[in-house]
Each structure stands twice: as C-alpha cells, then as structure tokens.
C-alpha cells in the first residue's frame, strides 16, 4: 500500500538498487532518484570505502535496507553477531523499513549464500513467523519479507506459496515485499498462474514491490537480474499496483549492469503505472470527501 505502518508511513516512488559501478556517477552527477535500496550485508562492516560512500549517499538520498542473509526460514537461531551488525547499520541509515527474504540458507552454522525455498508447512509458518518477530523486536523497525524465486518444491508442502506468505506475514505481523519478477519466475518453473498469486496476496500488508529481469533456459527460468524487465512481469506489476495502490517500487539489476541512466530509465517505466494508480486513489478520495459532505 502507498504509505502504511509496514513501510514506516513513507510514500516513496521509484528507486533503484545502489551498485558499485554507479557510485562515481551518483556522487559526481547527483542524479534525481526517489530512493536507493542498499544490500545491508555490503555495509555491515567496520570501516573503509563502502561506508564512506554510503554516508555520502545518505546525505542526499532516501535509503532503504534490503538483506540477503537473515534467512527468516532457517530452523536454527539467527547469528547474534549478524543481528548486532545489522542494528548498527539500521541506526546509521535510519531506514524506514528493512526487508529480507522468506527463505532459508544456513543450517548448523554453515551458509549456502543462496535464497533457498521453504517447505510450505505449518511448522515452517510457526518457526519463520517467530523468527521474524524476534528480529523485528530487536531491530525496532518494521520488517518486510520478500517472496523468492524458486526452482524446486518440496513433497511435504501443505499449502501454496502465497498462502504460506500470507500466513507468515499475519502471524509475524510484518509487511510484504512483493517481488513480481520472482512470482513470474516461480510460476513458470512450477506451472501456476502468477495472477492467482498476485490476487491472493494480502494487499494491505504490501510495503514495497520489486521488479527485475530474468533469463529463460530450455527447461526453467532463472532469476538473473541481468536484463530489463520483461513484458509478462510488467503485466503482473500492473495488476499488483491495481490491487495495492501506488507502492514504493524498486528495480533490481545485479549482473551485466549497464550505465546508471539505462538502469534508472528502466526503473522509471514503473512511473506510468504508479501515476495511474495515484489518479485512481485521488479520485476515490475525492468521492469519499464528497459523500462525507453530503452526509453532513
């Protein structure tokens, strides 16, 4: 939703991921960008150039933290050192919300550095929701969970992915980062209708949306973030915006990264969908005011 308690009541527009090849352009040209999303882990360090660059970006732009290694769905406890470092960064950035993935990736102290799909079971709902609550309590800011793209499904799953996402979000009382590219990738890999997913998600909990490009292989689709956003993903995005309203949107481009201008221009294609939704929201608000006036 446009501004809600899950995104700190902000109303951010279209952002892009902050990536090293663009540092110089951003620092010297100071382009107009609604907001940047940073990968938290890149800045959970003690010193050096990454933090110097981050501080300069923070001086001029809205920044939101996005993590890749909290592994909310891991059965083992979070690493306390990880949490301490994350909280220190949260204090530095003043991020209005913090996102990470609805997945697992480590077990018994070993890290896969991947976003592994969950078995969609009731036990996993409980474990994951508890962990999100603990992290949210510790960090003292809204936590938002992102659906991942996946290439495998478990026999033991007891529900659809979107049902799992909704259950976890409700029990943890957290927000949702809806990645429409991930929905599309998974829908092709697991043969479901991506619109069923988008239509089922708890719209009032959506705090942010991700868009990205992917790569098609002979037997599956891989979430590569190395292309412009493809048409089917834009269609899914349009439907998502129609349901949730003009919500903070971010383009992820992580490999074969082109110039800043190209990435930003691709992201700004989202603006026409957001503008349409804003018009619709504005019209609805006007109508409500008029009705309220009549009632008085």
């Amino acid at each position: 939703m446009p501004a809600n308690r899950f995104n700190g009541f902000t109303d951010y527009g279209v952002g892009i991921g902050l990536r090293i090849p663009h540092y110089q352009h951003i620092l010297t040209r100071k382009p107009v960008v609604d907001w940047f999303e940073i990968i938290s882990e890149n800045y959970m360090i003690d010193g050096g150039r990454p933090l110097e660059v981050l501080d300069k970006i923070l001086d001029q732009y809205n920044v939101v933290q996005h993590g890749v290694s909290m592994y909310f769905g891991s059965a083992s406890d979070p690493d306390p050192e990880h949490l301490r470092r994350l909280k220190r960064l949260v204090k530095r950035t003043n991020t209005p919300w913090l996102s990470d993935h609805l997945c697992w990736g480590s077990v018994d102290g070993r890290y896969t550095h991947d976003l592994l799909p969950m078995p969609y079971t009731w036990e996993a709902v409980k474990v994951t929701a508890e962990r999100i609550r603990r992290v949210q309590d510790f960090l003292e800011i809204p936590v938002v969970v992102e659906n991942v793209s996946s290439y495998a499904e478990f026999h033991v799953s007891e529900m659809a992915e979107w049902e799992f996402l909704n259950e976890v979000a409700e029990r943890a009382d957290c927000g949702i980062l809806l990645d429409v590219n991930n929905i599309y990738v998974s829908s092709q890999n697991h043969s479901f209708d991506p619109f069923t997913y988008v239509n089922a998600v708890l719209a009032e909990r959506v705090a942010q949306i991700h868009i990205a490009g992917h790569s098609k292989f002979e037997k599956y689709i891989l979430d590569t973030h190395d292309h412009p956003v493809l048409d089917p993903v834009w269609r899914l995005y349009a439907r998502a915006i129609e349901r949730v309203g003009p919500t903070a949107t971010l383009l992820e481009w992580d490999d074969k990264i082109p110039s800043f201008e190209e990435v930003h221009a691709e992201a700004m294609k989202a603006e026409k969908y957001l503008a349409a939704a804003r018009t619709k929201t504005g019209a609805a608000a006007t109508k409500v005011s008029e009705l309220a006036g009549v009632a008085r």
Binding site: T112, D114, A152, K219
Partner: peptide, 24 residues
C-alpha cells in the same frame, strides 16, 4: 525431498541449487 515437474526430475531441480552454490 523434491517434487519433479514436467520438464525436470527431482535430481535436476536440486542440482540447480548445488551448482549455484559452488559457482557463487
């Protein structure tokens, strides 16, 4: 552990993650 689909066996689906881990 893993469901097959109409294009990939369970082994092939798990292999995607095994390869991604090592390549990364």
């Amino acid at each position: 552990l893993i469901k097959p689909n109409d294009r990939l066996s369970s082994f092939e689906r798990l292999e995607i993650y095994n390869r991604q881990y090592w390549f990364r």
